[in-house]
């Protein structure tokens, strides 16, 4: 652990930005650790890494890290990221977003980013609720769960994030949880390496709102529940469908090769310039 902590500290804006805004026990910090370890393992030049985020608890992540960091307006992280990436295709562009940011207000940008297949890694931290504004239901809040704006239970149906991303055309789609940290490190590592649009859903806990409003206990209890409920896709494939029902499937949902947008655009430039 000591060694890991050293790695983490190498990338923090420790003197400037701490303490952070997250509640004690929040899973977002775990995702931040996974992201740092993935970047460190990839030995990326940090001048060539840009983290882009929108608005919400998860979107506060970039400010703590010593990269190029861009904290945008609500839902628009992917749109800003698209501009950064296309203007400078050498840049590793990583978007940190949440379920409300990416799928409600930013839903349009999300599906079109999947479709466009620009080499952007989108880490979507799904805690099933709007945390920063006080626990309103989000596009991933389960049906009948309680939220500040669903006092009688949520009447809507949630998005299945991997299915949404695959349907929209993402090249790499994976889901991990903040309990299964080693796997999450690997999924983010693979997502960054993937040339094309990659979506990594990091399933996380908001014990402060989602947990409290639904009597799910503290962060430890929620992590334990994650441990119990998660089911790797490979294991699920060998199980009867009724046993898979209601489980949180984890692993790589899709990993396909499609020519990347900036590569295609660069080829266009080359051909127009007669090179």
């Amino acid at each position: 652990m000591a060694q890991r902590s050293d790695i983490t500290h190498k990338y923090l804006r420790a003197k400037k930005k701490f303490p952070n805004v997250w509640c004690a026990g929040c899973g977002i910090g775990i995702v931040m650790g996974s992201l740092i370890r993935a970047i460190d393992k990839l030995e990326l030049d940090r001048d060539n890494v840009t983290l882009v985020s929108g608005i919400g608890c998860s979107s506060r992540l970039p400010v703590y890290l010593d990269f190029n960091t861009l904290h945008t307006t609500h839902g628009r992280a992917l749109a800003f990221a698209t501009g950064v990436k296309l203007a400078n295709p050498k840049m590793h562009v990583i978007v940190i977003t949440g379920d409300g940011d990416a799928l409600a207000i930013g839903g349009n940008h999300f599906i079109h980013s999947c479709r466009r297949n620009m080499d952007i890694t989108c880490i979507l931290i799904n805690n099933q609720i709007y945390g920063m504004t006080g626990g309103q239901f989000s596009p991933t809040t389960p049906t009948d769960s309680h939220a500040a704006t669903a006092p009688y239970g949520n009447k809507e149906y949630p998005f299945d994030i991997p299915k949404l991303a695959m349907g929209a055309g993402a090249s790499y789609v994976a889901r991990g949880t903040v309990y299964h940290v080693t796997q999450l490190d690997q999924l983010i590592y693979d997502g960054i390496q993937k040339r094309g649009f990659s979506l990594v859903e990091a399933f996380s806990n908001c014990h402060t709102y989602f947990g409290r409003l639904n009597r799910l206990g503290d962060s430890v209890k929620m992590l334990e529940e994650m441990k119990k409920n998660a089911l790797p896709l490979k294991a699920a494939a060998k199980m009867p469908p009724d046993k898979v029902q209601g489980k949180l499937l984890t692993g790589v949902f899709c990993d396909v090769e499609r020519e990347e947008y900036c590569d295609r655009y660069d080829a266009l430039i080359q051909s127009l310039q007669g090179k």
Partner: peptide, 14 residues
């Protein structure tokens, strides 16, 4: 909305 986001991103990238 995305258009103006993209040009801001591109401008920040130089």
């Amino acid at each position: 909305i995305a258009s103006v986001g993209a040009i801001i991103g591109a401008s920040l990238a130089g």
